[in-house]
């Protein structure tokens, strides 16, 4: 009897052990995806798949749409964006090279946007850890543009940034809809494919030929130089949690190109991995800079202007107004 009881106890203990293991196994089988791995998957989707479709952006009550062609050879990405609203224009991107054809004025604007090459390296830096400032929540599945999509919400952990709701195609992870949300969950801005064809027959050679065909156009290269903000005499007393300095540029401003450096501005870019803020500093001009303290918004993008002695500061970013105030307050002139 005692032996039977002991055996029973062993059996029950073994059962509890197995159930416990099973339970913990079940917990580890379905983990909450990390933001880093989720973002990497969405990025990888655009590196591996060709697609074409119609892209629609709605911001601040204004809507715009464009026809999109995207192709990738696993290393280089290439896109053609043909605007369907507003002035006719075609934008091509090949890696970090961006060329815009303004068809009515026969002008081509050619630029190098090194920021476009910063991902996914951006996520690997220790300075920018998106997971510290956003919480990823899975929100089930929905159907967008004819595709089944996983819905996730990237909720901000403080009031210094906006949240995002993202629809990514189930099989590939390609982002097909993106919303920017304020702290009350209201949609400030939305981008989405209204129509999408995955694995579309898009050839990189064709897009390259179109991108390089500037015959009959005047090619303009905006004079933008990367500079060191410290060497330019600017510093930040402190930064909002999570935001880091990404890059700083000197660029011409206004219409008079004869005055050289005196008429250029500094653009200092900050990011927390998802949101970006630009601080512009240029010499104060009493005729041009008349709207000090103006804080305005269009969709998710806000702007703020302020005079700081001999300088005029403009902050632009897809962040709440209070965050722009924080940035402008923290900027100081060292020279």
């Amino acid at each position: 009897m005692n032996a039977l009881t002991s055996a029973s106890r062993c059996l029950v203990a073994a059962l509890f052990f197995i159930l416990g293991c099973g339970s913990s196994l079940a917990q580890t089988v379905v983990p909450e995806p990390s933001i880093g791995s989720w973002l990497a998957r969405t990025h990888e989707a655009s590196r591996q798949r060709a697609y074409a479709g119609t892209f629609v952006v709605s911001s601040g009550g204004v809507m715009a749409s464009a026809k999109i062609w995207h192709v990738c050879d696993g290393i280089q990405q290439m896109e053609r964006v043909e605007a369907l609203t507003g002035a006719p224009r075609s934008t091509f991107r090949h890696g970090d090279q961006v060329v815009t054809f303004l068809t009515e004025s026969k002008v081509v604007v050619a630029q190098k946007r090194d920021a476009l090459g910063s991902f996914p390296g951006l996520l690997k830096t220790s300075e920018v850890d998106v997971a510290n400032f956003y919480l990823l929540k899975e929100k089930g599945s929905e159907r967008v543009a004819g595709f089944d999509a996983d819905v996730v919400q990237l909720a901000p952990k403080d009031r210094m940034r906006y949240g995002y709701r993202v629809w990514s195609e189930k099989k590939t992870g390609l982002v097909i809809q993106l919303q920017t949300l304020d702290m009350h969950g209201r949609v400030l801005e939305q981008s989405a494919f209204s129509e999408l064809q995955l694995d579309a027959p898009v050839e990189m050679g064709q897009l390259t030929a179109l991108m390089n065909n500037t015959a009959g156009y005047r090619v303009v290269h905006p004079d933008v130089q990367r500079v060191d903000p410290g060497a330019e005499g600017w510093a930040m007393r402190h930064l909002p949690d999570g935001f880091q300095s990404m890059a700083c540029y000197r660029r011409p401003v206004g219409l008079d190109k004869t005055m050289g450096a005196a008429n250029s501005s500094i653009q200092w870019v900050f990011s927390d991995g998802l949101a970006t803020v630009s601080l512009f500093a240029e010499p104060f001009n009493v005729a041009r800079h008349v709207r000090e303290g103006a804080l305005e918004g269009l969709g998710a993008t806000h702007t703020l202007t302020r005079r700081a002695k001999d300088w005029w500061i403009t902050a632009v970013g897809e962040v709440p107004p209070s965050t722009l105030i924080y940035f402008v307050e923290a900027l100081e002139r060292k020279k």
Binding site: S118, V130, V166, L274
Partner: peptide, 17 residues
């Protein structure tokens, strides 16, 4: 300045593409 922010402020993981 807003156009410049859009052009050169693309340091976001959601920026590409």
């Amino acid at each position: 300045l807003m156009a410049a922010h859009q052009q050169f402020g693309g340091h976001s993981a959601l920026q590409v593409p």
